[in-house]
């Protein structure tokens, strides 16, 4: 069995102990989505504000994370919030796809424009999760919730 150190890398524990961007944003203008892990009862709330930059792309201008969860889901949410701030929604989609492919998740219906090969930076620390299959859902919960928050609903 892989060891605990594979799963709980120092950087993950750091984000778990000192989560970044905890809180709420006013909705609207920010969008909000809630994600649940029915397995363990964890829930996560993602608030995300976007604005259009000079190139006409939508950019994550602010993000806040609420809810409760295990160290993996909380650290993943915290790292995600740090990683996506200032990124365009296309860049966020690429990052999400990259993270999921690290988790060995086949991303269905991904359009060709999405690049699953972008550098993950600190998020690489989540690579150990793949050895603990029941925890993959913990690591991806925040990302799925963010995707839901930025998907236009009409």
């Amino acid at each position: 069995m892989p060891g605990l150190d594979d799963l709980y890398r120092e950087i993950i524990l750091d984000h778990y102990r000192s989560p970044r961007n905890r809180g709420e944003l006013e909705t609207p203008p920010a969008a909000k989505a809630e994600g649940f892990n029915p397995l363990c009862g964890d829930e996560i709330v993602v608030y995300v504000a976007t604005e259009t930059n000079n190139d006409g792309d939508e950019v994550v201008s602010d993000i806040a994370i609420g809810g409760q969860g295990c160290s993996i889901s909380q650290a993943s949410a915290s790292m995600m919030s740090a990683a996506v701030k200032g990124k365009t929604l296309t860049e966020v989609a690429n990052l999400t796809s990259s993270l999921k492919s690290m988790m060995s998740i086949e991303v269905e219906g991904t359009d060709a424009a999405v690049d699953s090969d972008v550098s993950l930076g600190d998020l690489q620390a989540l690579s150990g999760v793949v050895k603990f299959p029941v925890r993959i859902k913990c690591a991806t919960l925040a990302w799925n919730t963010l995707a839901e928050a930025v998907t236009p609903t009409d």
């Binding site: 069995m1 060891g3 605990l4 799963l7 363990c40 009862g41 295990c70 160290s71 603990f132 925890r135």
Partner: peptide
């Protein structure tokens, strides 16, 4: 410690407990 994390540590010692709702 979150129950999921507790159960992960316990599993390393062969101890099976339930974490969840």
């Amino acid at each position: 410690a979150h129950p999921h994390d507790v159960s992960q540590v316990l599993d390393q010692h062969g101890i099976a407990v339930r974490a969840g709702h």
